[in-house]
Design a protein around this nucleic acid. Structure first.
Lengths: 334, 334
DNA sequence: TGGGGTGTTGACAGCGCTGTCATACCGCCT
DNA sequence: AGGCGGTATGACAGCGCTGTCAACACCCCA
């Protein structure tokens, strides 16, 4: 009364377990009629191969592992959701793990996932490049998402951080802003360095000099960003617009704006977030399109699982500026 | 150069693989000195047991499966995040799957997870009670979360839906509201039936008769809720306050309010959502405390894994009314 | 007619564990 | 002294697959 095994299917179909195995794995050189009969037996018995046994027998687990900063971050939640959907389509399961922004933990989690014998891994790494390079496994296909972190021997999917930031700041400049603040911890992530570069570029194009008083690079979390944003908005030289280089920074700014009743300060956030369109004013964002990142990552992973020797790709997806109101505000008093 | 196996540990420590196995599984009747030596060898070799082999050998996979409506729903994302954190603490991995609110898919996903040989399952079921009862596996520990769905032979963790709704509506009544709208698809979930009951109860206590024009039970998604909310707020008998029985309904109402510039209508949403405190006005919610649900579910699952015969528990957690502004608005014109 | 593919199938040995059962040894009671 | 029960350890057979290699039937070409 236990689950049927490959032996049951073999007996039922009249073939050997090896032939059944071939049918399951769609191996070549099996007669059509044989395939049909084995399939019929599988159907009849409602047989499903045991993943653990498949793995142990020599194959990989029909599973892909996903490692992200935090599962309930809306960005990563969507990444996980899309990967799960794609995996389900091809009969794979998804193991999730989070780093909690801790490099040691990142390393441990990667090892654990790799140890389980997953077919592939989607990883959002962070931090020191050397640590990342050492932590990434070499015996299992990996696709790196969101942050390159100096990785050159793995497929990478990320977005045009600099261009996206440039777009955002240009957008503000086009509305007449000249005093545009920047928030984002550039020391932590190369993505933020790139976004800052985009900020500088857009200002440069407009002939605006970077005012260090309007650049805040110390905060990482929304909680840390809040006081800095507060301070920046409260100064006499307060910016008329702010570019928040991440949703966390954006939250800090929004809280500060609310606190100071300064909804008149224009704002563009890099990274969309839920209900942004319901804010007052609705928040203009640079959408990183997590779904597209996840889709591409899945495609690349599937490709690498199938062909481990395939050329290593560094895919850079475009971002999308979504004007919703906060980024279209004119400079105060103009 | 491959990963060390139990044989390597046995050789290194001078004991048999069986004794090593005993140490790994903390089996009784092993001398302290033996344990110490084996542990030392494990440490030395950086040995980690192969989960697939453990599973195949007779044990369960050190993995727990989580099945929810949708992984990027903030409520479930937090549930998954907490379970992953808890699982990591005890060296377990987490397999995620989503139902997409499709009963057939729910069934398939449950079977797939059970087939993998997970140690336990956390499931948010939905829909027809008979289907749910048939879909839940009997050969693996299961904890049902969020919705009871008529399940009586599994541990359940949910919240005080009726009480939470009563609290919310009482809160509105206390501010002087007498025309209070209700939105929520009561036909789909028992949780929503309970919330409606809470609504009715609070009104009854206040001697307010239920006005069917203020009760909308047809919508499920935010998209569906929007037009209904719009219609309700646009009528001459428009409510001065609305109780949205789910975050989805809440979104619909918020969009309608924005569209009609009716931020003066008081609103309480059942279920917290990100940045609710940054809305204008900040949204008062009944917090379901997904983290607490997940924590409790994990505890119950661990308990059941350890003792499959333990008494079946139906745990009902309290909700938390979080006043933030929208629920404290006085009736229009008063 | 024989040699050498090519296509199709099966026997069998693992993969790295755990469960079962056997074994060896100890102390203690009668 | 003999026997018994409890403790500590090991030998060995699976668990349900896949990889390797062999077997066999055919077919083609020389």
């Amino acid at each position: 009364m236990s689950r049927p095994t490959i032996y049951d299917v073999a007996r039922e179909s009249g073939y050997s377990i090896k032939t059944v195995s071939r049918v399951i794995n769609e191996a070549p050189n099996v007669r059509d009629e044989t395939v049909a009969r084995v399939r019929a037996a599988i159907e009849l018995l409602q047989y499903h191969p045991d993943p653990a046994a498949q793995r142990l027998g020599g194959g990989k687990l029909p599973t892909i592992g996903v490692l992200v900063d935090s599962i309930d971050d809306p960005f990563f939640a969507q990444v996980v959701a899309v990967i799960e959907a794609r995996a389900m389509d091809v009969g794979m399961d998804v193991l999730v793990a989070s780093t909690g922004m801790d490099q040691t933990r990142m390393r441990t989690q990667i090892q654990r996932l790799a140890r389980r014998g997953v077919a592939g891994l989607v990883i959002a790494p962070f931090g020191d490049e050397k640590v990342v390079a050492e932590a990434l496994p070499h015996d299992v296909p990996v696709v790196v998402i969101d942050r390159k972190c100096g990785v050159t021997d793995k497929d990478v999917v990320r977005v045009t951080d600099e261009q996206g930031a440039t777009d955002a700041v240009r957008h503000l400049v086009a509305r007449g802003h000249r005093r545009i603040g920047f928030l984002g911890k550039t020391s932590a992530f190369t993505t933020l360095v790139d976004r800052y570069a985009g900020y500088e570029r857009a200002l440069g194009e407009a002939g605006i000099e970077v005012d260090p008083r309007l650049v805040e690079t110390r905060a990482w979390s929304a909680e840390e960003a809040y006081p800095y944003a507060l301070a920046m908005l409260a100064t006499p030289e307060a910016p008329t617009a702010v570019f928040a280089a991440s949703p966390m920074m954006g939250l800090g700014v929004l809280r500060a704006q609310r606190r100071l009743h300064r909804q008149d300060v224009a704002l563009v956030i890099f990274g969309d977030y839920p209900v942004a369109e319901l804010m007052t004013p609705p928040t203009t964002v640079v959408d990183q399109r997590p779904g597209a990142i996840a889709d591409t990552a899945f495609d690349l992973l599937a490709r690498r699982i199938q062909d481990p020797g395939a050329e290593v790709l560094d895919t850079v997806l475009p971002t999308l500026l979504v004007p919703r109101g906060s980024g279209e505000l004119a400079p105060r008093g103009s």
